[in-house]
Design a protein around this nucleic acid. Structure first.
Length: 434
RNA sequence: UCUGGCGUAGCUCAAUGGUGGAGCAUCCGGCUGUUAACCGGAGGGUUGCUAGUUCGAGUCUAGCCGCCAGAGCCA
C-alpha cells in the first residue's frame, strides 16, 4: 500500500503542483510511444494523463503500465506537473503504479458505438466523461430544486409509490400484486400533496413516477422523476411565480457550478444565460393563433403535439407558460375558469429549443359539489376518492401546484437528444436491463 | 397500437444476385510526447430466425424476432 498521507483526487490536483501524490482510479485509455506510456486515469472527479517513462521507473512498473487493460483499477503515485498541453492543465509523472483490479476486453472501446449497445452496457457507459458530466448536472439540478423550495418555506412530504387507484387514467398504470389485492405504481403524488398542503401550507414531494404508456419518443420514459410542489391559499399566478423562480434558479446554479460539464457537452450556454424571471405567458387561445400564423391547422380542444410545441417554443428565447387549456384535455381535479367554464385554470411550461413540456400544473377544484359533478360526468368511482373529497369538506381553500419532470429538465439544460441519457438507468418501453 | 427505417466479426460499418471485407478492440512486434496516437503482423463469421424464388441469396419475396426514429398519450 502506498502511503495514504498524500492521497488526493484529480479535481484537487492543482493544489499539489511539484509534490508527489497518490491517485486511486481507473485507466480510461492508454497510449504508448515505446519507452513512454501515456495513461489516462479517471477517479470520478476528473481525468488526468499519467506519464510512465522507462528510465524513471522500475522494469516491473513499466511492464505493468504496458499491460494494463482499459478500465483496470489502479493506484498511482506520481509528481504533479503543470503542463500546457494537458486539457486540465496538469499531468502526473508516475513513479509507482499498482493494479488493484484487472480489466480485460472492456466492451466500450474509444470508438463510436450504437445506442442499443451503449444502453445494454449502461452500467459501464456512465464511466465515460460525457455521461459523468450529465449525471453531475442532474445532481446539481436536484440539489438546486431542494435548496430553492426549502428556502421558500416548503416542507418535503414523501408521497407513496404504491397506490390503491389511479390519479388520472387507469390504462397507463403499472399494476402490481399487493397481497390479496391489486395496487398500482404511482403516476403522480399530487393528490397526496393536496392533503399535505392542507396540513402544512406549502409542500413538495420528490420521487419516481411510473407510466405504462407505450410511448416511444425522445421525451418518454416509463419510470421518471418528478418534483411536485403544492400550495394552499394559492392562485394560478402565485404558482407561476414559484415556477419561474424555481426554473431560473436551477439554470443559474448549473451555470455557476457546472460550467465545465456544460462545456464538455458542447452546450450553448448563451441560450441558458437568457433564462431569467419572468417568463412570457400566453393563453391556449393565443397559442392557437400563433400556430395558425405559422401555417398549422390546430383544432380547438386538442392538446399540443410535438410539432406544435416545437413551433410555439421557437417564438421565445425563454420557457413559455401556456395557460387556460380546454377542460376537455385536463384531469378531473382541475379548477374550471369561473368566467369561461370550458377552460381550466392551469398552465404548462414549455422549455425552449424544442424540449417541450417540462411542467404541468394548475389550480385544483376546491368546491365539493363541482368536483363531485365532474367525477360523475367522467363516470369515475367515488368510493376510492372519499379521502380526497374530505379535503373539500373540511376547510377547503383555493390551492394549486405543479409537477416538474426532472429528466426533461436535465435533457434541456444539457442539450441532449434523448431523455434516456438524463437518468442513470433508463426504463423505456423495450428496456428494463440493466 | 400505427407509419417508416435498420439487422453482416466483440464494436462501427462496406460488399452490382456470382470466392464475405475494412477500421477499432484483442494477441505479437516497433517507436521517448501521445491526446479516438501511429506503423507492421496474426487470430476472429450459422450475414437475426424460418420458409420460398434461383444453377447460385448477405443481397430478391413472405412470415416472425430484435432495435431505431416518429405519431397518438404525456412530464
Amino acid at each position: 500500500m502506498i502511503s495514504p498521507k498524500t492521497k488526493t483526487t484529480v479535481y484537487k490536483i492543482g493544489n499539489f503542483a511539484g509534490q508527489e501524490v497518490v491517485i486511486q482510479g481507473w485507466l480510461s485509455n492508454s497510449r504508448s510511444s515505446g519507452s513512454v506510456h501515456f495513461l489516462t486515469i479517471r477517479d470520478g472527479t476528473g481525468f488526468i494523463q499519467g506519464v510512465v517513462a522507462k528510465n524513471e521507473v522500475t522494469p516491473e512498473t513499466f511492464q505493468t503500465a504496458n499491460t494494463l487493460g482499459q478500465e483496470s483499477a489502479v493506484e498511482v503515485s506520481g509528481i504533479v506537473r503543470e503542463e500546457k498541453r494537458a486539457p486540465g492543465g496538469y499531468e502526473l509523472t508516475i513513479k509507482d503504479l499498482k493494479q488493484i483490479g484487472p480489466s480485460e476486453n472492456y466492451p466500450i472501446t474509444p470508438k463510436e458505438h450504437g445506442i442499443d449497445f451503449l444502453m445494454e452496457h449502461r452500467h459501464l457507459w456512465f464511466r465515460s466523461q460525457r455521461q459523468q458530466a450529465i449525471l453531475k448536472i442532474r445532481h446539481e439540478i436536484i440539489r438546486a430544486i431542494r435548496d430553492y423550495l426549502d428556502s421558500q418555506g416548503f416542507v418535503l412530504v414523501d408521497a407513496p409509490i404504491l397506490t390503491p387507484s389511479a390519479c388520472e387514467g387507469t390504462t397507463n398504470l403499472f399494476e402490481v400484486q399487493y397481497f390479496e389485492d391489486k395496487a398500482y405504481l404511482t403516476q403522480s403524488g399530487q393528490l397526496y400533496m393536496e392533503a399535505a398542503a392542507m396540513a402544512l401550507g406549502k409542500v413538495y414531494c420528490f420521487g419516481p413516477t411510473f407510466r405504462a404508456e407505450k410511448s416511444k419518443t425522445r421525451r418518454h420514459l416509463t419510470e421518471f422523476w418528478m418534483v411536485e410542489p403544492e400550495m394552499a391559499f394559492c392562485h394560478l399566478e402565485d404558482s407561476l411565480q414559484v415556477q419561474e423562480g424555481l426554473v431560473s434558479f436551477i439554470v443559474s446554479r448549473v451555470l455557476e457550478n457546472r460550467k465545465k460539464d456544460l462545456e464538455f457537452l458542447k452546450r450553448d450556454t448563451t441560450k441558458l444565460e437568457k433564462i431569467t424571471s419572468p417568463f412570457p405567458r400566453i393563453s391556449y387561445d393565443e397559442s392557437l393563433e400563433i400556430l395558425k400564423k405559422k401555417g398549422l391547422n390546430p383544432i380547438w380542444g386538442n392538446d399540443f403535439g410535438g410539432t406544435d410545441e416545437t413551433i410555439l417554443t421557437e417564438q421565445f428565447e425563454k420557457p413559455v407558460f401556456v395557460t387556460h387549456f380546454p377542460m376537455a384535455c385536463k384531469a378531473f381535479y382541475m379548477k374550471q375558469d369561473p368566467v369561461r367554464p370550458e377552460l381550466a385554470v392551469c398552465a404548462d411550461l414549455l422549455a425552449p429549443e424544442g424540449y417541450g413540456e417540462i411542467i404541468g400544473g394548475g389550480q385544483r377544484e376546491e368546491d365539493l359539489e363541482l368536483l363531485k359533478n365532474r367525477m360523475e360526468r367522467m363516470k369515475m368511482e367515488k368510493e376510492p376518492y372519499q379521502w380526497y373529497l374530505d379535503l373539500r369538506r373540511f376547510g377547503s381553500v383555493p390551492h394549486g401546484g405543479f409537477g416538474l419532470g426532472i429528466e426533461r429538465t436535465v435533457s434541456w439544460i444539457c442539450g441532449l437528444e434523448h431523455v434516456r441519457e438524463a437518468i442513470p438507468f433508463a426504463r423505456t418501453l423495450y428496456r428494463i436491463y440493466p
